[in-house]
Simulated scan of single mutants.
Amino acid sequence: MGRLQGKVALVTGGGAGIDLASAQAFAREGARVAICGRNLETLKAAANLILGGAVTIQTDVSRLEDLDRVFAQIQVQFGGLDILFCNAGWSQFKPFLSHPESRPALTARGFSFDQWLRRGRQRVAKHQHHSGHQSSDTKPGCTLSAELLDRGIRVNTISPSPIDTEFFGRHADDDGAAKKSLHLNINPSKRLGTAEEVAELALFLASDDSVWVVGADYGIDGGAGNL
């Protein structure tokens, strides 16, 4: 029996790269999987690559009303959610309060999924691009993991260095080839990580193998974080 047998998993941005690799890993271990993102055709193509298929939901995760619709659909189709892997987005190095939706939206977004998660069975992993680690302070009000732990929800984060996916060069101001070359030169392992390597870490955090892991941030970066 797989490590996620009988679980329901949602992967945001689940159409390619780390998203798709993680959805595939979850399904391989027995989970029923839903993926969501902006491009429906990309999601449908990805679903065909996931064992047993996947529910595809077109959505913009930056919109709170879209998130409510996603969780409501999962509730109808699966009866609840056990695993949430928040993986959509990319890093922008700006002051937190400079974002117009900063605190109110992020707070609401962080707690909006709570009503849909099945009590005592859930585990949540969040992928964050490598731009600093989660605070080690575990007092309520300091981290999401502390706020939600008494509800049976574990929150952990994954902080990868650049991963070799099609994400490189996707944006107009992003020279993918130059960025790859830079990171190859400065990374002690002299290579980029793979989506599958990050997916295996996400699988560990989503499973009961990590039941004693709470509020941790995992750097998966080939040693780059030690520089």
Rank of each mutant, 00 (worst) to 15 (best):
R3Q: 15
R3S: 14
R3A: 11
L10H: 09
L10C: 05
G13S: 08
G14S: 05
G15V: 05
A16W: 12
A16M: 14
L20G: 04
S22A: 15
S22I: 07
S22N: 04
S22R: 03
A23T: 03
Q24M: 14
F26S: 06
F26T: 07
A27W: 03
G30I: 06
G30N: 03
G30H: 05
R32I: 00
R32W: 10
V33D: 13
V33A: 12
V33N: 10
G37W: 10
L40I: 13
E41R: 14
E41S: 14
L43P: 00
K44P: 00
K44R: 12
A45K: 15
A46I: 09
A47Y: 02
A47S: 12
N48R: 11
L51H: 01
A54V: 03
V55K: 12
T56M: 15
D60K: 07
D60A: 08
V61R: 03
S62N: 05
S62Q: 01
R63F: 00
L64H: 10
E65R: 05
E65L: 00
D66S: 10
D68T: 13
A72N: 14
Q75C: 00
Q75F: 01
V76K: 11
G80K: 01
L81M: 04
N87L: 10
A88D: 04
S91C: 06
F93G: 06
P95C: 06
P95I: 00
P95L: 05
S98H: 08
S98C: 02
H99Y: 04
P104H: 05
A105D: 11
A105W: 10
L106I: 00
L106H: 09
L106Q: 09
G110I: 02
S112P: 01
S112F: 00
D114W: 03
D114S: 05
W116N: 08
W116C: 01
G120F: 12
R121A: 08
R123Q: 09
R123C: 09
R123G: 09
R123Y: 04
Q128V: 13
S131Y: 01
G132N: 10
G132Y: 07
S136A: 15
K139D: 14
P140I: 11
G141S: 03
G141Q: 09
C142W: 13
S145N: 08
E147I: 06
L148D: 07
L148T: 11
R151M: 08
G152D: 12
I153Q: 12
N156L: 02
N156P: 04
N156W: 00
N156I: 00
I158E: 05
P160A: 11
S161P: 00
S161I: 02
P162Y: 11
F167S: 02
R170Q: 10
R170F: 04
D175C: 03
G176S: 12
G176N: 11
A177D: 15
A177M: 08
K179N: 01
K180T: 13
S181V: 08
H183G: 04
N185K: 12
I186V: 15
T194K: 11
A195W: 03
E196D: 15
E197C: 02
V198Y: 01
L201P: 08
A202W: 02
L205H: 02
A206E: 06
S207H: 07
S207L: 02
D208P: 15
D208C: 11
D208N: 15
D209M: 01
S210F: 01
V211I: 15
V211A: 15
V214A: 13
G215M: 02
A216S: 14
I220V: 09
D221N: 09
G222R: 06
G222T: 06
G223H: 05
A224R: 12
N226K: 10
